[in-house]
């Protein structure tokens, strides 16, 4: 039996973000979805539960609409989902996020394992996992590309730049996974229907003994500028020409660009 908490962010769908003519990203109207790698974390949790039994709770600090995203995690196999409402509209830093998540985890009761993604698709800081482990005073295993339980301990293979390192750690512990650890399942219609009956809890900060002011105090990071990348490419695409001809055209263009033989 293993009781798992999966931390998941309801992130901006980065593919839908546009840059306005002044170079500012337009976030208004951009849809959100559960951050990609957090679904890998969820899948890893389901795999462990299928093998060892136990419970899975999904937890998100985010907008009230995060419920829509968490439904997908319930359909994948979480037993319960929790949203802690962020009154700031995503303006707080990772320290504040962790403050909120830790308070929620305390209230949720005991756990054996917390699973996170290696990083989120939008913010991409990779901070929340290690910070949360630090805050809760539990060991951390990051960049896990495999995960199993052996005699009550977590065994994971970490993917670092220069080596694969297999580690073993007793629980409770926090593990962050890579997107290569598994392929998240696509829930079936029946699973989605069942998920609609699973419990979903929404907490306000006050329910956790926190407040917006308290989080703002913890959050010392300020964003002074956001600039979109404006790389204009020529987009001269050659289609439906015989290979030889297409290649010749490309080579002569590259010669003109003076990027050959430099």
């Amino acid at each position: 039996m293993v009781d798992i908490i999966v931390c998941a962010k309801y992130a901006w769908d980065v593919a839908e973000i546009k840059i306005d003519p002044s170079g500012k990203p337009v976030l208004e109207g951009v849809p959100r979805r559960i951050s990609d790698i957090d679904k890998n974390a969820m899948e890893a949790a389901v795999n462990l539960k299928e093998k060892h039994g136990g419970t899975i709770k999904a937890l998100c600090f985010g907008p009230a609409s995060a419920k829509d995203g968490l439904k997908e995690l319930l359909a994948m196999g979480a037993d319960e989902a929790y949203v802690v409402e962020d009154p700031s509209g995503g303006m707080l830093d990772t320290a504040a996020t962790v403050e909120a998540l830790a308070a929620a985890i305390q209230k949720m009761g005991s756990f054996d394992l917390i699973l996170c993604g290696e990083a989120t698709t939008d913010g991409y800081t990779g901070q929340v996992g290690p910070r949360l482990a630090g805050k809760l005073g539990i060991p951390q295993v990051t960049y896990a590309r495999s995960l199993s339980l052996e005699d009550g301990s977590v065994v994971a293979e970490r993917d670092l730049e220069d080596a694969y390192i297999t580690v073993k750690v007793s629980m409770p512990a926090l593990v962050s996974v890579t997107r290569e650890i598994n392929v998240p399942r696509i829930p079936s219609l029946m699973a989605i229907l069942k998920a609609s009956k699973k419990p979903m809890t929404t907490w306000k900060l006050e329910d956790l003994g926190l407040s917006k002011e308290k989080l703002e105090e913890v959050s010392t990071l300020k964003t002074v500028k956001l600039e979109g990348f404006a790389v204009e490419r020529k987009r001269l695409i050659i289609k439906e020409k015989p290979v030889e001809e297409a290649v010749q055209e490309l080579v002569s263009n590259l010669l003109k660009e003076k990027v050959l033989g430099v």
Binding site: W12, V14, A15, I17, D122, K222, V224, K225, L226
Partner: peptide, 13 residues
């Protein structure tokens, strides 16, 4: 940030 579409500049208090 944002999947590589945007750069953000920060200070820390």
């Amino acid at each position: 940030v944002l999947g590589g579409k945007v750069t953000s500049t920060h200070t820390i208090g």
